[in-house]
Amino acid sequence: MYRSGAVMAWNVFKFCAALRGLGSIMILVVLGVVGVTYYAVVVCNYAPALVDGDLDSLIAVAVLILFHSLLVMLLWSYFSVVFTDPGSVPPNWRPELDEERGDTDPLTESEFGTASSDPVNLRVRYCRKCNQFKPPRCHHCSVCGRCVLKMDHHCVWVVNCVGALNYKYFLLFLFYTFLETSLATLALLPHFVAFFSDGEIAGTPGNLATTFLAFVLNLAFALSVLGFLIMHISLVAANTTTIEAYEKKTTPKWRYDLGRKRNLEQVFGLDRRYWFIPTYSEEDVRRMPALQGLEYPSKPDFDAQEF
């Protein structure tokens, strides 16, 4: 029995190591899809249409301007997620007792490692893998091998954890990916339909194959990203993460749910001019502790079920 458990634990760690090694490949996959789409939309179809004149040229200008604008925002958001640390627990961090409520986050004696009669110690969270205290909403990532502030999930597509400091960038990446892939699908749809027509199709076989492949890829990504985007919008509206939504299961109330407007501000900031770009205003960073991942406002006098 012990041997079987040991083998299972070993396989889990090998799986985590495989996910870490998959990172650079996934970046190449993302850039590859972007490259194929760019070649199909711009090089094969709409750049040549600029010289056609009349309505075709106007449509081509509009498509190219919108396509390049969304592409810039997509790549900016994507690499912001990739290169932004999601948030680590500061060295020697210690929880502070809430003097008004008289508690912090709960912790069972078995998790803490030693029994204690101190009521404060019984309401702190501790990671036995990192050997450190855990701030509220912090979780340990087995792939990264560390605790991540307000961890949502580890995403192989961005080669990084999605947490407190890069969650907004991840949401914008989903948003602009959906818009870009939807635009590419619509732009390539007439050329895709032409494959099944009886008339003669202009273009080299290579360009036609690239157009066909780009249409199928972008349609698939648009549909899949839409579902993922809707899920995360619902999570943000309730001020919860993927992990928290799973853990709280049927809990009817959530201590961090401050209403949709304030919940959105906890992720995107107070300055709405910055909501759709992957950065924050200096004022928001200074005024909102939640953007740093260590302190989160909650409902007053709310006895929530903690994890």
Rank of each mutant, 00 (worst) to 15 (best):
P297K: 11
G87Y: 09
C127I: 09
A18G: 14
W254S: 13
V159G: 00
L50V: 07
H154Y: 09
V72P: 02
D301I: 02
T114Q: 09
A304N: 06
V148E: 09
C138N: 08
E109V: 12
R20T: 06
S117K: 09
V12Y: 13
W93Y: 03
L229W: 05
L28S: 10
G203Q: 03
S117T: 08
S57V: 06
L208P: 02
W76P: 04
W76T: 15
L183H: 04
T104H: 13
R125C: 05
P48Q: 02
R125Q: 15
I25P: 00
P86K: 11
Y274C: 14
P205Q: 06
W93M: 00
F302M: 14
G5V: 07
G53C: 04
L64H: 00
L149A: 13
G102P: 05
P190M: 11
F276S: 12
V267F: 10
A47I: 12
N207G: 15
R125P: 10
R262C: 05
D105H: 08
F215K: 05
E100F: 09
A222P: 00
M73R: 11
F79Q: 09
E180C: 08
N92E: 14
P252V: 02
A220R: 00
Y38P: 01
L226V: 05
K14M: 11
L264M: 15
T185Y: 07
